[in-house]
Design a protein around this nucleic acid. Structure first.
Lengths: 344, 344
DNA sequence: GATACGGACTTTACCGGTTAAGAAAACGTT
DNA sequence: AACGTTTTCTTAACCGGTAAAGTCCGTATC
């Protein structure tokens, strides 16, 4: 990739125009002491007149800050497009980065090894000042890698998965328990859960919490199905759960995202089952989609935008030298809408 | 943002270990002639043993390639999360960038002036090797800015909007016309269109095409409403269109994205109107959402992922010096599903 | 056997900043 | 007036690469 030449104005031009050395210009632009107010002004005026701003690449190379943070997402590209979660998450991250004139370096990777390699080369190549790690698995290799390299990183996931990294997480176990209790309180005794990718750490946390809650409440039936988060998979899972004959069929289903819940809604309709009379559905991640369906979807709702923002704020903290910490964000809260009701 | 010190291995270390000068290492890693196979091997071996890879920042500063492309999106951050289009588009872009070991620098901006400033500082600061420009408006300031600066850019939008920039675009006018003709052929005489943000160039292209098609077909009624693309706005627009008494009410509605169409579906249900018997709905951008509703949504469907990929490929062409060009991608094609039928 | 030439490397000068160390002027002290 | 301080600014080395210009050497040419 070659660059078309452009008349570039550098620190030298500014220095010349202000009648000082480039060192002085550097001092001025970094707000460091050692310059009189008068020269400082002259320098800024010259810079403004020339439309100059410090070159971040050079600045980075010279060893000061790097104002880019990395985010690698490890899912098949086509699947990603469908997930409302990520776009909302990213927009939350961006909202904080922007305040710091910081940009996001985004990359889709095919597997964790590739991600580890990418993070390493980003960091060693000073491409990023810190990184956001998402979608943790059990024994995730990124924990060790980030620590070995000393990358300032924030792990999005439960501390049990993120080892010694600073983490930002939602208490999914409590949320799942609340969801199950709510449905049980409505009178449901046979509840199913359509979960996400089995390899993902938060999926197993939710799965375990679901089993435990179901056991504690002595439910008559508790099913779990793993999917890839896609609408199609959600539809398939729902179909297989609902084909059982009436007494053995679940009367309520909890989904791991909202796309799959929407799919479930449509499968129920197609099978001639009414929601919520014949089967109750409960979504997760509550994007605006849940309010656009008919009936509207009850959901475990969750400020994903704010979550992203909190992750970015925490990352800035880590970059500034804050010690390792664990930052829980508010637990998803149950938002009952039209898709849940007592079973008949 | 300060960086934690890390033992960095540089080109000098590799050179020392291979017993050559750093210039030789540079030649080897850029696959340039002037080295014997033997030394080349020694250099690569040394690099592998030390785990070295060229520092992109330094490489950039030294004036060769920049392997980052920029994408600034100018919409309120919260609204963005909702648009399936962008995430799918980005994933398409990424799929091509990844092949070239290239990353995407993503930034949300509040307005076009901010974007122009950002593109300029990215480019002058050599942060990016090229840029993808989206959401064109009439007399878009980015056209002149990109040309003045000489930024290799690809404009996503109709050539009439993107001036002298290389563009990649879908023929929205033809697609709108096809949509209207299809509905008219089903027997609809009163058709409405729920459009996107009025300021956007493609919105006015679609609006004009809609009017023209409606006129040409001599429709009895043709309404258009502008929205902000959100589901809520789509719901409001649908509600106001459908509250008219029966004979004056549209019997078919075309939406500018799929989120609004889903919202429309639910508004119809809430108003006691059956889809498609009482009112036909036609979506745009056809994400998997359209196949998950009940009834499924007919849509003007469109490979958004492939669109993004094509944009990225075109950008690489521009960066490599291809002349200005206009690259149409396939026109959205009508995909009839369950939400359209002849009016009663 | 001197001359030219091409291949294989090395040297050196940047790229556009930062920063430690040095120098000149201004200031206060005795 | 001589001397230490401080303030203000300059110099020069460095960050980690690239690339043009040199150097050295073996060999083909006449």
């Amino acid at each position: 990739m070659t660059a078309t030449p452009t008349p570039r104005v550098t620190i030298k031009d500014v220095a010349a125009r202000a009648g000082v050395s480039k060192g002085a210009v550097s001092l001025a632009f970094n707000h460091k002491p050692g310059l009189s107010e008068a020269t400082r002004d002259r320098i800024f005026r010259a810079a403004r007149e020339l439309g100059w701003a410090p070159n971040l690449t050079a600045r980075t190379l010279a060893g000061s800050r790097v104002d880019v943070v990395g985010l690698a997402i490890c899912r098949p590209a086509r699947q990603l497009g469908l997930e409302p979660f990520y776009m909302e998450f990213i927009s939350g991250v961006e909202s904080v980065l922007t305040e710091h004139s910081c940009s996001l370096l985004l990359r889709l990777v095919r597997n964790l090894d590739e991600e580890v390699g990418l993070q390493e080369s980003w960091w060693r190549g000073r491409q990023i000042g810190g990184s956001i790690l998402v979608d943790f698995r059990a024994d995730d290799p990124r924990v060790a890698a980030a620590q070995r390299l000393g990358i300032p990183a924030v792990a999005v996931g439960h501390p049990s998965l993120t080892g010694g990294l600073t983490s930002v997480w939602t208490d999914d176990a409590t949320a799942v328990t609340e969801a199950v209790r709510y449905l049980a309180a409505l009178g449901h005794r046979r509840i199913a859960r359509v979960g996400g990718a089995a390899a993902l750490g938060h999926t197993s946390i939710r799965a375990a919490a679901f089993d435990e809650a179901a056991g504690a409440l002595g439910l008559a039936g508790a099913w779990q199905v793993a999917t890839d988060f896609s609408g199609d998979a959600g539809a398939r899972a729902t179909r297989s759960l609902l084909t059982a004959s009436a007494p053995d069929r679940p009367t309520a289903i909890v989904y791991d995202n909202d796309i799959m819940a929407v799919a479930g809604l449509s499968v129920a309709a197609e099978m001639g089952l009414r929601v919520p009379e014949d089967v109750s559905l409960l979504a997760w991640d509550d994007s605006q989609l849940c309010r656009l369906t008919h009936p509207t979807l009850s959901a475990m709702s969750h400020d994903v935008h704010g979550f992203g923002a909190e992750v970015a704020r925490t990352l800035f903290g880590v970059i500034m030298g804050d010690g390792v910490g664990s930052h829980p964000v508010p637990t998803p809260v149950l938002t009952p809408r039209g898709s849940t009701a007592p079973p008949r």
